[in-house]
Write a protein that binds this DNA or RNA. Structure first.
Lengths: 277, 277
DNA sequence: TTGAGTTCTACTCATGCTGAGACTTACTCA
DNA sequence: TGAGTAAGTCTCAGCATGAGTAGAACTCAA
């Protein structure tokens, strides 16, 4: 990063042969999450090509490395993640529906044998999106849909329970489980729940995000107090929603995301005794 | 992960040519941290070969992919991290000094141009170690030492301040900065500070770990109360240290790590107002 | 040997955050 | 129009925290 190579490195580089090593491929896979109908959904594509043709998978694909074969189109890892998301779903990357998604690196999965073709190292990304239009399949994907996470029968250990109809290819069940756990944790100490909402939202809508991701009901009054008391979490627009709740109740006020990057104090999920040991 | 390939995949795999893509290399780099003389130290090696020969770097190297060139020695990513750590430092991996280190994945760095040789994707690991013997250089390393983190002049943005003598190769300053921030955060909500101590330790020793990593003095009384009140953080051995503090004071009692995996409630670092916005 | 200085451990107290519940008000739907 | 629902505010008890005090045990130097 800004460091200057030594003098005699040019000679070294001229004689360097990358083909002297065993080949490895690098892919990106994206765990894209959104809230639909009050439930957490993940974007899945149906694989059109081998391996695992016909099974469901996270959107993703090979990183453009840049080099002699395909030309000098080297792309950075987050770029590759956005490109794959756009290609396989038909959603437009810049300014379009994907413009406002939060994207962060989740982890890298590289166990030998996880891809039958060759040694593949997959860098997984996690995306939080407000409600997006239905995707259109493209690229390698035969189909692409938002799928309710609950319908995938994921256990905490990263496997799908027997009897689940929509089975995931590769080690994507493990990656998705890790992504969900990361999302649950991030809601505690960052304001990223607002990334699931549109530009303006109500506190009950924000609470619905927490309830969908954590799978738990929260105390409405305490949640309200907490959100307003954490500095920079939300800021008031002064406006009021034009409708009350679905089944009655007064019209909630509208807020937008504040400028905080961390919630302090954090908004901890209730009772996680099981996870502590 | 347990999924069975479809019937006609064998034909597909027989015709698959991994060389049809631009070559990418995958490396692992390790941010190995320990406490020496009350200060946080990181393991650095002096590069013996180009690129960046003579500069300091995190221990690391290429992952053995397995395949036709080098033989079927495919290794998983954490394995590669432990192997590189052992090779470049002379510390023995299994049962030896490296036997009790905590290892976790930190993140993956793959910007085009970060390595002048070719497109290199580096998977970084973070290791927490109790006080280890001085390393012996090996492998590609011309030298290997524990270096005080404070001496590297790292800014929060992941760059070295001008005037720092020991300059880091590649984007290793960025990786190290990310590793330090991860370590600081992990001490808050996990009992991993105990991984910096030996098998038995005193509460003042544990406090010294927190103070070294956070760079802040803690209130001794409150720290003591907190550590003992969090369930599963430490358990008593019943024994007492055979010496008081360096400059006086009663002999502290000895504890060992408990069975908790998360601290609840967390042990938050004081006053981070700056980091919130 | 003694005394000054240090530190472990335990305690107190004020403050602030949290969970649980009650209550008022405003809205939807039948 | 009335029953049911939910937003927003409030109260109260319990717990965790930060800050300070105090006693006892130890090291080190005079």
């Amino acid at each position: 990063m800004g460091a200057v190579p030594e003098r005699d490195e040019s000679e070294f580089l001229a004689n360097y042969d990358p083909r002297a090593y065993d080949p490895v491929a690098v892919t990106v896979d994206v765990v894209a999450l959104t809230i639909r109908d009050g439930a957490l959904h993940v974007l899945l594509v149906r694989r059109g090509n081998a391996p695992f043709a016909g099974m469901w998978a996270l959107p993703g694909g090979f990183v453009h490395a840049g080099g002699p074969v395909r030309g000098d189109d080297a792309e950075d890892l987050p770029e590759a993640a956005v490109r794959e998301l756009a290609e396989e779903t038909g959603l437009s990357a810049k300014g379009g529906a994907l413009g406002r998604v939060h994207l962060e690196q989740l982890g890298t999965y590289g166990a030998p044998g996880r891809d039958p073709r060759m040694r593949v190292i997959s860098v997984a990304y996690l995306a939080f999106a407000p409600e997006l239009p239905d995707p259109e399949a493209g690229g390698d994907a035969a189909d692409a849909t938002w799928t309710a996470v609950d319908a995938l029968g994921l256990s905490e250990s990263g496997e799908q329970r027997p009897g689940t109809t929509r089975r995931l290819a590769f080690d994507h069940a493990r990656i998705l489980a890790d992504g969900l756990e990361r999302a649950r944790a991030k809601l505690e100490y960052t304001p990223l729940a607002t990334a699931f909402c549109g530009g303006e939202f109500t506190i009950p809508e924000l609470r619905a995000v927490y309830e969908a991701v954590w799978g738990e009901e929260l105390h409405a009054g305490n949640f309200h107090r907490k959100v307003l008391s954490v500095p920079g979490f939300v800021e008031s627009t002064g406006a009021t929603s034009d409708r009350g709740g679905r089944r009655g109740g007064p019209r909630p006020r509208l807020y937008r995301a504040g400028d905080a990057r961390l919630l302090h104090p954090a908004l901890l999920r209730p009772s996680r005794e099981e996870e502590i040991r």
